[in-house]
Write a protein that binds this DNA or RNA. Structure first.
Lengths: 196, 196
DNA sequence: GCCAGTCTGTCAGTCACTGCCAACCTGTCT
DNA sequence: AGACAGGTTGGCAGTGACTGACAGACTGGC
């Protein structure tokens, strides 16, 4: 949470934001597949090479910020006091993410719909989420009173994967309902069906 | 389970198997990323174009048969008698898949390790699994006594996603243990931690 | 043998992505 | 002001996955 130090850093942030905005606009106009990186670069006013320097892959134009959110999630869960149950700690982590995201719900919905509609994007998204799960393992193991071995514990992995699965189900349904449903409620329903 | 009808069909199957075998061998030798489709085609004795006609993508050389297994899973779950609980029905589906796969455990381990070690393959694999989940939704909804609406039910999705999550955790741990662990046991542990 | 339909190989092309190098911009030291 | 060092950008050529189009080969039915 450090203030954007140098002026140079801020202009860089502006360039990144500009590229993402033009990319999302183009994806909305023509669809993800039909849009080329050359188009994005040209309309954003930078070289194609620079777009790849900033984002690495076309998919990261959409899924890029997931990276940072993962760290937020892990530290939020780790920061929960020990008397909070594992399930509540994980839920708290996800609510933290929701409030930490500085996007309008419309924007979140737009991006989510893009991801859910596009197999290649969806695949990449799932894989990134799996990294979140991996980095959560030690945190949850400690919370469940399990010694962290070199290989993760099946119980910890199961709990983490289940919470993610329910979050995922809730997100997908939220998108399918056009953002009109209560995602939190859907999550509770899904988890209750599992644990009840 | 129909007998491979025409001779032509059988030789076609042989070609497909030959391509997969050479591909896996090359991946084992040089790694997945470092192996080009041109190499696979050349060593398999077919044109590069034909490889793409059979498999569509490089990833499908490894994940291709997942497709068929998904249908086996769905029909196996649907075939469970109604008095079997939802959880048991899903577990039965997965054990059916395990026995239906006509590969040696070594082969399964080799393929699984390839998938888990390779982000691009892993991503594609997860996305395919998600399609299994989608096609299971109506089956599970009926079993849980839920009317199938146009949008899936959160409870059904949660249960399905959870079982898959635990299967996934168990598979990954099984691979991390070099195939020496009991995958079934790991699955039970993970699910017990969730439902207990 | 002949014809229709299917399968295969070849070729050229698109697009994501990368390494390389020259130009450039920015702050610093003298 | 001018030289210098660091990092940044753009252009360019290349690789590799993947696709469409076309021509030849191969198959089964007549």
């Amino acid at each position: 949470m450090e203030k954007s130090s140098t002026l140079w850093d801020r202009s860089r942030q502006a360039v990144v934001a500009e590229i993402v905005d033009t990319a999302l606009a183009l994806f909305a106009e023509q669809g993800y597949e039909a849009t080329t990186m050359a188009q994005v670069a040209k309309r954003a006013g930078v070289s194609q090479r620079s777009v790849f320097r900033y984002f690495g892959t076309k998919e990261d134009l959409v899924c890029g910020e997931q990276e940072a959110l993962g760290e937020v999630l892990v530290s939020a869960v780790a920061a929960q006091p020990p008397e909070v149950s594992t399930w509540d700690a994980l839920r708290a982590g996800f609510t933290t993410i929701l409030t930490a995201s500085n996007h309008t719900p419309q924007r979140v919905l737009e991006i989510s719909a893009l991801i859910f509609d596009n197999p290649s994007l969806h695949a990449r998204y799932l894989e990134k989420r799996l990294r979140w799960q991996r980095s959560l393992v030690p945190v949850i193991e400690k919370r469940m009173g399990i010694d962290s071995g070199e290989v993760p514990d099946a119980r910890a992995m199961g709990v983490i994967a289940t919470v993610f699965a329910c979050v995922d189900a809730a997100s997908e349904l939220w998108v399918r309902h056009g953002g009109k449903a209560d995602a939190f409620e859907l999550y509770e329903q899904a988890l209750a069906a599992v644990r009840g």
